[in-house]
Nucleic acid binder design. Structure first.
Lengths: 247, 247
DNA sequence: GAGGTTCCTTGATCCTGATCAACGCGTCAA
DNA sequence: TTGACGCGTTGATCAGGATCAAGGAACCTC
């Protein structure tokens, strides 16, 4: 769990792997030179966190950032009276954090068991100043997150409950890596597991638990999806699901 | 309207002003060295566009970016059946464009008469490669836009119609520069003009025209705001308005 | 195996905001 | 002057999704 205090090896066979987590920080490591990578490796640590673990808290000073190696992280905002909205979902190999702001205005929380490589905030911000490649990677991710957020805005502002649920299912299907799909698929049937509970899906889509549940039931009886043991979804025909999203 | 073909002057008294629009591209020019600024100036042109003018179109290849010098620009997305959602509002001195994507997934349109300084897309993308300072400025703006988008997600996902309208009014109030406020204010009364029509406010808030109109009427009869000639809003007590936003 | 807890589904009812419709007002052109 | 048009308001009604309520299934712990 703690840092590997290994000195940088000039002849390291895999010089672009973080030595702490033994993985390539896609989007981070690739932009660093050997010295920077060595320093980042020294001050990173790999951790496996369980579902529900808070990574960043709103109104709390941020002390560390992470890269997601596996798992799903939700970003959420809350109103004083407790109403909650999930404003983003992040998957490997996303970077988790809000650079250049002493505190995040949102909460980042592991949705599933999640593998992270974590490093100090001020180290990253120093490296950004040194390495324009690093900032470029982060900029590209911010632009991608902005695109995602605006897609979700369209969903929340203008789509019906059924369209929202279909949009969500399609999004998760697209984030399920090939090879992690479920077995035993007839023809080109797609299958995946939902990483979120019904309550979380509701908080993502601006709906209630009951509405999410009912819309899933309706999509099931329309033959668009099959649902097995709550979390497991099968989609006989992706086109059919896509036709339900409204766009 | 067209470019000023002036050679860079070493002893220019205001070297950080774009020579085309005679303004500082806040967020852009400040990050450039003298040569870059000269080139940008040469290939920029200042233009005044009227309300409704499209700056960027969804699914169309992007050929130019702009800085807003004055006015308001809306970013919107549309569903095939015509439902529309405004996913962002931009004010001076924002940069308008989506770097590193050949085409935008959204439409950018002037909401009011707007003054722009416009330059070719590929020039900017080349300068980003040369100047890490420039990319840093753009990254900061993208992060700010991301924060805005996520605030709006909370509004669309979890707030009531009344809260949404109050949130919108407060946002416009905050974007009205001091000094451009309306005259004749008793005590610390705030006043401003709405840059958007009711239909645009509705598209921003995920509501209908009628609901926006009714909620404005209700805020008026509650004494939170006064409305003069449709577009002019006065807020006797900002705290009272803020208390209506839900956060 | 009893009871608790979490997660999910389903039914009944309610209510917020959408929809449909009419009208007022200002502007512009014929 | 007249009518058309854009913009906004208001009223009547409707409906989609929220709320309230109950219960089932899986998984704990004791």
């Amino acid at each position: 769990m703690k840092v590997l205090k290994r000195a940088p090896l000039e002849n390291d066979p895999v010089p672009d792997l973080c030595r702490a987590c033994k993985a390539r920080h896609r989007g981070i490591c690739g932009a660093l030179d050997a010295d920077q990578l060595a320093e980042l490796s020294r001050r990173s640590h790999k951790q496996v966190v369980e579902a529900g673990k808070t990574l960043l808290d709103a109104e709390e000073p941020t002390t560390s950032y992470s890269n997601i190696l596996a798992g799903v992280v939700k970003l959420s905002k809350m109103l004083p009276d407790g109403r909650q909205q999930i404003v983003g979902l992040q998957f490997a190999p996303d970077f988790v954090g809000r650079p250049f702001s002493p505190e995040s205005s949102l909460k980042a929380e592991a949705v599933t068991a999640t593998v992270l490589c974590t490093f100090p905030r001020n180290l990253l911000e120093r490296m950004i100043e040194q390495s324009s490649g690093l900032e470029h990677r982060l900029y590209l991710q911010a632009l991608a997150e902005l695109d995602d957020a605006r897609d979700l805005l369209l969903t929340l502002g203008r789509k019906t409950a059924r369209e929202r649920v279909a949009t969500f299912l399609l999004m998760i299907a697209r984030h399920t890596p090939k090879g992690e799909e479920l077995e035993g698929e007839a023809e080109s049937e797609a299958g995946f597991d939902l990483p979120l509970t019904r309550a979380e899906i509701a908080d993502f889509l601006g709906l209630t638990i009951e509405t999410v549940s009912r819309q899933l039931t309706k999509l099931k009886s329309s033959g668009v999806i099959r649902v097995e043991q709550n979390r497991r979804i099968r989609v006989p025909d992706m086109e059919l699901l896509a036709a339900e999203t409204g766009d």
